[in-house]
């Protein structure tokens, strides 16, 4: 499993398609995490589900960077930011490669 991370509208998907043409994609992982949190799933359950889904064959997980802002007023938004961050750190540990995309330019950081 490989991970592609970066801000929104940075060209992550196109970069991922070009870099991993034969892979299957788990796109918008940050939104998947948000949805599962709204269904009262725990951090561990969500992480396990993503790892399980991406365990067979070559997968690329794509996620938006959502932590680079002012602390949100809304408690659920704060919680989402924290949990998404923790899950992405765990996914990065498991990943073979981690790429970060800024302005459409990808950097392999692992």
């Amino acid at each position: 499993m490989n991970l592609v991370i970066g801000g929104s509208y940075q060209g992550k998907t196109e970069y991922a398609l070009n870099t991993f043409p034969k892979a299957r994609f788990f796109n918008q992982a940050h939104l998947f995490i948000k949805k599962r949190l709204s269904e009262d799933k725990t951090q561990e359950e969500i992480l396990a589900e993503i790892l399980e889904t991406t365990s067979e064959g070559q997968w690329v997980i794509i996620a938006d960077e959502i932590g680079n802002g002012v602390v949100p007023m809304d408690a659920n938004e704060r919680n989402w930011r924290d949990i998404a961050g923790q899950i992405l750190i765990e996914l990065a540990k498991e990943a073979t490669e981690v790429h970060r995309v800024v302005l459409g330019i990808g950097q392999r950081i692992k």
């Binding site: 960077e65 932590g67 680079n68 930011r81 924290d82 949990i83 961050g85 923790q86 750190i89």
Partner: peptide, 10 residues
């Protein structure tokens, strides 16, 4: 330097 939940503390 890093965002919230980036793992910067660790």
């Amino acid at each position: 330097y890093g965002g919230s939940g980036s793992g910067k503390s660790a």
